[in-house]
Amino acid sequence: MLVVATIKELQNALYKHRQANKKIAVVPTMGNLHEGHLALVKTAQQHADIVVVTLFVNPTQFGANEDLDSYPRTFQDDCDKLDALNTSILFAPNIDEMYPLGGDQTTHVHVPNMTQVLCGASRPGHFDGVTTIVSKLFNITRADIAIFGEKDYQQLAVIRRMVNDLNIPIKIIGKPIVREPDGLAMSSRNGYLSEKERRIAPRLHQLLQTIKQEIIEGNHDLKSLESHAITDLIEAGFKPDYLQIYQRNELRPATENDKEIIILAAAFLGSTRLIDNIYVNRS
């Protein structure tokens, strides 16, 4: 595995592969890799000849009171995991390489409307940071394909909108959520959970499954389902951020006529913010 830290090094390496007509995939990450990330890499390898994994803890997507400084950084362990998968290239730049003028002074990419709801409502500016860094990585790599996890469903929807709106020539592939045996969605932040919190955490996914079953069985009172679920989360020990039932593709509140639905939730356990979602196809 080739490990590079500068844009010039990466582009020089990719130029040779591009000249040889190799298909290139990029997997953007912030490191602290787990099986969910590795599943993204394996998916990329199925679709491309050369897989570039990027590792960059992006400061512009963290809010003032969020966990930028404490976000887990496990570079050598990440390298070992990627090397074991025969990853082609790891791109691990520092902040000055990605934001030479500083994050506040760089051009930002903004996707309207769908970035103002859900996580965007409680994390102002977060998605501007995401779309800015992702667009930079797309331009740097000129990859043919990019792989993103569906756990961050709103992020995936926002990136798809950005690619479509800006005519970026890249195919976006979403990879289904990878879960622990008890159903908890894998996340780098799960390591923050105490033993007690870790026992409670799977309740979030269980609750989403319950709502899904209610909808499949014909319950059309979506607002009632949302409010009852919020109460259940509080009783289980969570501090809910949101739990909402949306139309999947347009990312707007679902109506009783919508067939493709997604139930999305974010909630705190202690200081740890967990997110999850589940699809519902209603006939």
Rank of each mutant, 00 (worst) to 15 (best):
V3E: 11
I7Y: 02
I7T: 09
I7R: 06
I7P: 01
Q11M: 14
Q11L: 05
Q11C: 11
L14R: 00
K16R: 08
N21E: 11
N21D: 09
A25I: 02
V26E: 00
P28M: 05
M30R: 02
G31L: 05
G31D: 04
N32Y: 14
H34N: 13
G36A: 15
L38D: 06
V41G: 01
T43E: 13
T43A: 13
A44H: 00
I50R: 00
V51Y: 01
V52C: 06
V57Y: 01
D67Y: 07
D69A: 15
P72L: 07
R73S: 06
T74M: 09
F75Y: 13
F75E: 12
F75S: 13
Q76I: 13
D78W: 03
C79M: 14
L82G: 02
A84N: 15
L85C: 15
I89S: 00
I89A: 03
L90T: 06
A92Y: 04
A92N: 09
A92M: 04
P93S: 06
P93R: 02
N94P: 02
E97K: 04
M98L: 04
L101G: 05
Q105W: 11
Q105M: 14
T106R: 14
V109C: 12
H110I: 15
H110F: 14
V111Y: 02
V111E: 04
M114K: 10
Q116L: 13
V117R: 15
V117C: 09
L118E: 05
A121K: 13
A121S: 10
S122P: 02
R123F: 12
R123L: 10
G125V: 01
H126P: 00
H126E: 03
T132Y: 13
I133L: 10
K136A: 01
T141I: 08
D144G: 03
G149K: 00
K151S: 07
K151E: 05
Y153F: 13
L156T: 11
R161Y: 09
V163I: 14
D165K: 05
N167L: 12
N167R: 06
K171R: 15
K171M: 15
K171F: 10
I173W: 05
G183D: 08
G183K: 05
A185R: 02
S187K: 07
Y192K: 07
Y192D: 03
I200W: 02
P202E: 11
P202Y: 12
R203V: 08
L204V: 10
H205N: 11
T210G: 06
I211R: 03
K212A: 12
Q213Y: 10
I215S: 01
I216G: 07
N219K: 15
D221T: 12
S224E: 13
S224M: 14
I230N: 08
D232C: 07
E235D: 12
A236E: 12
F238I: 01
F238K: 01
K239C: 12
P240N: 08
D241P: 04
Y242G: 08
Y242W: 13
Q247V: 03
Q247H: 08
R248N: 15
E250P: 03
L251W: 00
L251Q: 00
R252G: 04
E260V: 12
E260C: 13
I263V: 07
I263Q: 05
A266Y: 01
S271D: 08
I278W: 07
Y279H: 14
R282K: 09
S283Y: 15
